[in-house]
Design a protein around this nucleic acid. Structure first.
Length: 147
DNA sequence: GCCAACGTTGGC
DNA sequence: GCCAACGTTGGC
């Protein structure tokens, strides 16, 4: 799951109450589908820092809820407002995430690209811009060994 | 700041 | 349903 650290970083998540935060603001249908249909309470996710000096995997978090409607879509004054999402027919969903740990060091995007077993990761596909992407068990385990 | 790639919008 | 125009993302 991607976030721009200047907006919201792994350290910001660690400092949240109960180290938990709703992962709101996802406004892409593919990402929405992954959140709504694929994520389960108890799953783990990498926290990826994007659009920054050192893009890469910064830490690990736990999904602590199943998907529920993103309330920020209902707030006309908020930057994530979307009038087509209605309370009786929500368009956008989110999950709650909880800080688990930081990586010992950020695992840079450039390093991930160097490893053949990772070359099929969604993150590394050309033009891939999704803010939420699947990671296979095999990729997950391999990345943990890069620390 | 540049630009490639992708998503969304809207006229037809 | 097509597709051009425009907006956004994100690495570099």
């Amino acid at each position: 799951m991607k976030s721009e650290p200047e907006e919201f970083s792994i350290d910001d998540l660690r400092q949240c109450p109960n180290q938990t935060e709703p992962w709101n603001g996802v406004r892409n249908y593919q990402a929405r589908n992954l959140i709504r249909d694929e994520m389960q309470k108890g799953d783990l996710a990498f926290f990826y820092h994007s659009s920054c000096a050192e893009p890469g995997i910064a830490g690990i978090m736990t999904i602590t809820s199943s998907a529920y409607p993103d309330p920020t879509a209902f707030d006309p004054k908020g930057k994530y407002y979307d009038l087509k999402s209605r309370r009786d027919a929500p368009t956008w969903y989110l999950v709650d995430v909880k800080f688990k740990r930081k990586m010992k060091c950020i695992i840079p995007l450039g390093e991930l690209k160097d490893h053949k077993p990772l070359q099929r990761m969604k993150l590394l596909q050309r033009g891939s811009r999704l803010s939420v992407m699947p990671v296979s068990q095999r990729e997950w385990d391999y990345i943990l060994k890069l620390e």
